[in-house]
């Protein structure tokens, strides 16, 4: 199985978890990101995720490989949905197994945090009032800051 993948079908947490089973693993931690009905004070009806697939899978793979090396994991996996999602749907699943629990907890946190800032995936929110907007793109255009060149680093780390 690939370490990182985009998919347009419903994520099956039980099935994904089994992919991480290993005799050397003493602990398994997973994180599920769900679509929430509210963002920045607005009521959200549904979401659309769009990805630059080739780059997303490349960058996602780098993140999971980094996590495996950094935390000495037995295995790790991250799947991210694309397409239209409703409230409560699972948008992202991260799982890590390791000989001891600490590394699995830390690795899950690391992977989801890095995915959120490094992987070219975009989220369009559709609100109950009929309006819609790209998260991090619409309002930030109004207050772009002068030290924005932080975003231009070529090492793949957008924000710290």
């Amino acid at each position: 199985m690939k370490y990182f993948a985009l998919t347009d079908v419903t994520l099956d947490a039980e099935k994904l978890k089994h992919a991480l089973r290993d005799p050397a693993a003493g602990g398994f931690v997973s994180f599920e990101g769900w679509v929430r009905n509210e963002n920045e004070g607005r009521t959200v009806r549904r979401l659309e995720y769009e990805a630059y697939a080739a780059m997303a899978e490349k960058e996602g793979l780098r993140i999971v490989v980094e996590a495996i090396e950094r935390f000495g994991l037995t295995a790790a996996l991250c799947l991210h949905r694309v397409g239209s999602l409703g409230i409560g749907d699972m948008a992202v699943w991260v799982g890590a197994s390791s000989p001891h629990r600490g590394e699995a907890f830390e690795a899950c946190r690391f992977i989801i945090d890095q995915v959120k800032v490094r992987v070219p995936i975009w989220k369009k929110e559709h609100y109950v009032d009929g309006d819609s907007g790209w998260v991090n793109c619409e309002r930030c255009a109004e207050h772009a800051h002068p030290h924005a060149h932080d975003h231009l680093s070529t090492d793949g780390n957008q924000h710290r």
């Binding site: 959120k116 800032v117 490094r118 992987v119 070219p120 975009w122 790209w134 991090n136 793109c137």
Partner: peptide
């Protein structure tokens, strides 16, 4: 060439 807008995965 692709220009990457601010990302919002997760």
């Amino acid at each position: 060439v692709v220009f990457i807008p601010p990302v919002a995965g997760g």
